[in-house]
């Protein structure tokens, strides 16, 4: 496409202007959160009614951060959440993509029934099965270093294992796999590759975008877990970040510390997202495959 040089500059300017305006609409909660985390409570609350909420003015300090660390074991909560989230995301990517591979590429007896069941579970909101699930996990066995134990309460595994597989992640992979060029898989099979090799050598390398999407989706679900850890974890040692948020909602809410805490716990999510950024744009083109 050819551009008139004068026009090109103008068009570029307009493009950036549009992008920036839209950015304004999306960035403000984060700006509000971070700015507020430096303000004392009274000023923070007074500022919420004006644009001052988005600028670091007035009595700025790190006091809220010190306060947050005094009030709650912030590091422990973040560590717990990162551990639980990380483990679940990794296991989920493996197990769900395997299942989706089977649904998308393989033909086996019972497949359609099983797939229908998996898809139907999409409709079940977690809140509605929390209590039956609680009763179930409180009686499940586990073999660990100390031998056979009964009951999963107050552990990391109770926060991880029930969340590994879910219909949405599998569906996500299935939809993506269906879009992949089928000849590739057949070519692989013709060359004598086993199904595992097809999965591992052919399909996975093409799945950057969907792996990133599934990982982000799972990460957000896991990192924001609230109801489930609340009912299965009674010991502070295993508490995750969103349950920890409750430490700040006393009869007098310490809003400044709340904002400081939220800013701190948002950091791991941002790092994770930035880390996955590149996978989103790793297109089919860059892997040298033609459709």
């Amino acid at each position: 496409m050819a551009f008139d040089p004068d026009n090109y500059g103008l068009r570029l300017f307009v493009r950036y202007l549009v992008l920036c305006l839209i950015a304004l609409i999306f960035i403000f909660p984060l700006v509000f959160m971070i700015n507020s985390s430096f303000k004392p409570d009274n000023q923070l609350l007074a500022d919420t009614s004006s644009l001052r909420a988005f600028v670091p003015v007035g009595d700025i300090s790190l006091n809220n951060y010190f306060g947050a660390f005094r009030r709650a074991p912030v590091g422990l909560f973040v560590l717990n959440s990162v551990l639980v989230t990380g483990a679940t995301v990794l296991l989920s990517l493996l197990i769900c993509s395997l299942a989706a591979f089977s649904f998308a590429f393989l033909r086996w007896k019972g497949r359609d029934v099983v797939f229908s069941i998996v898809i139907a579970t999409l409709i079940i909101p977690f809140e509605t099965i929390a209590i039956p699930l609680l009763l179930l996990v409180s009686k499940l066995p586990w073999i660990g270093l100390e031998g056979l134990q009964w009951g999963w309460l107050n552990t990391y595994r109770v926060q991880i294992i029930p969340w590994i597989a879910d219909g949405l992640t599998i569906f996500l992979f299935v939809q993506y796999f269906k879009g992949l060029p089928g000849e590739l898989i057949e070519a692989g099979r013709v060359e004598g590759a086993s199904w595992w090799q097809v999965y591992y050598r052919i399909v996975m390398p093409l799945s950057g975008p969907v792996l990133a999407t599934a990982a982000i989706l799972k990460f957000l679900v896991m990192y924001n877990q609230y109801l489930w850890p609340l009912i299965v974890v009674q010991q502070e040692t295993y508490r995750p970040v969103m349950v920890g948020l409750g430490y700040f909602f006393q009869l007098n809410v310490a809003w400044g510390e709340v904002m400081a805490y939220l800013t701190l716990i948002t950091v791991p999510v941002l790092i994770f997202y930035l880390f996955l950024q590149r996978a989103f744009i790793a297109s089919i083109a860059s892997t040298g495959v033609k459709g």
Binding site: S102, R107, K109, I129, L136, I161, P162, G167
Partner: peptide, 22 residues
């Protein structure tokens, strides 16, 4: 065999932790 093997871990988890409680 391969179909079931690949799908089983995911399906078993979903069945235990979502379908049963439902």
């Amino acid at each position: 065999r391969t179909g079931w093997t690949f799908a089983l871990p995911g399906f078993a988890l979903i069945f235990t932790f979502i379908v049963l409680p439902f």
